[in-house]
């Protein structure tokens, strides 16, 4: 049963004045290294456990490495960071919290499933725009830890549905600041999404569950800013996957908004077909890895001037699925711009 909410309520769009993206750092797993964007990541590991004895500890280490890497790459020191915010897919968001325990820095833990990375940017931008100088936003996911929490043990011989996606392994961290001495990208606007549920129950088809949420948020953002898709160099969704991305395009075009070649989905772009991920990647790592590697580079090389990043999340848990409930979803949208003239 689809949960009915009043669609006519308009989502507001936030404007940020001073939110600069100093730099980002990405740590990717072995399958991601073999994927299409393998060469773009700052660090790739050849073992999922990252030298630790369990997958969970490996995931934590990826988060800690991404966090420290981003701080170093941005040319700031640990003590300059006023807050760390972020989250992951594990119960009680242990990966982020445990990775952060080595830092004497204020910490906010967030959860919006795979949309957590963009959620952390939305919140982080608010903090630097008003109260703080530097904020670190970190998020990611891990195939082996997510698989056993959400689905089955790894060694179980299960038949994967052809429209299933593959949880990406990796972590990404972005450092936001209220000022910058050198030219860099800025987060200028954000539209916070609402929970949308169109009644999809199949946990192997999360792209379809999340597409309506992404559509809802994108339409609100375009409407509030009086823009159309062509005004952006890139419109990027987090982890809708190939099927979810197709449905997303179908949904928006039925509402009169046609997406062009400037649309891409992080999850759908990460792997080669031979890697048998079927519909592509999923997980918070998709947007965290792609944004903090290839996209930030393109922004800072002036190849992208204005873009939207829509983080999508499916908010179910194994318990709600076993109880037969449908999958509520969320999508947050941020607008990132690189204006060279600001620094001239």
């Amino acid at each position: 049963m689809a949960y009915m909410v009043n669609d006519s309520y308009d989502l507001p769009t936030i404007n940020y004045v001073n939110c600069y993206i100093l730099d980002g750092y990405s740590v990717a797993g072995p399958k991601e290294r073999m994927g299409k964007l393998g060469e773009h990541y700052d660090l790739t590991v050849d073992n999922d456990k990252f030298g630790e004895d369990t997958f969970e500890k490996g995931e934590r280490k990826m988060f800690a490495t991404a966090l420290q890497g981003a701080i170093n790459k941005s040319g700031v020191s640990d003590s300059d960071i006023n807050a760390i915010i972020g989250g992951d897919l594990l119960n009680q968001i242990v990966s982020t919290s445990f990775a952060t325990r080595g830092y004497p820095i204020p910490y906010l833990g967030l959860y919006n499933a795979c949309g957590t990375f963009v959620e952390s940017l939305v919140v982080g931008a608010m903090l630097v725009d008003n109260y703080m100088q530097h904020v670190a936003c970190v998020s990611g996911s891990h195939f082996s830890t997510a698989e056993r929490q959400y689905r089955f043990p790894l060694e179980l011989g299960v038949f994967r549905s052809p429209h299933s996606q593959w949880t990406a392994t990796g972590a990404g961290c972005t450092i936001l600041s209220n000022h910058s001495a050198h030219p860099c990208a800025r987060i200028t606007k954000a539209t916070i999404g609402r929970v949308v549920d169109y009644g999809i129950k199949d946990i192997n088809n999360m792209g379809a569950a999340m597409a309506p949420a992404a559509c809802d948020t994108l339409l609100a953002h375009l409407n509030n800013t009086s823009t159309k898709p062509d005004d952006y160099d890139l419109i990027m969704t987090g982890d809708l996957g190939k099927l979810g991305g197709y449905i997303f395009g179908d949904l928006t075009s039925k509402k009169g908004v046609v997406l062009g070649d400037n649309y891409m989905d992080c999850g759908a772009s990460m792997y080669y077909p031979e890697q048998r991920t079927y519909m592509g990647g999923s997980g918070a790592a998709c947007s965290a890895l792609v944004f903090n590697s290839m996209i930030l580079n393109q922004l800072h090389n002036n190849e992208i001037k204005k873009m939207l990043l829509i983080g999508t999340g499916a908010l179910m848990s194994p318990t709600t699925s076993f109880q037969g409930d449908s999958i509520p979803s969320i999508a947050h949208c941020i607008q990132v711009e690189y204006e060279e003239e600001l620094w001239n």
Partner: peptide, 13 residues
């Protein structure tokens, strides 16, 4: 919302 499930079913590979 009412026809989304059947739409997804027919669209999925």
């Amino acid at each position: 919302k009412s026809n989304y499930k059947s739409y997804v079913f027919e669209t999925s590979p």
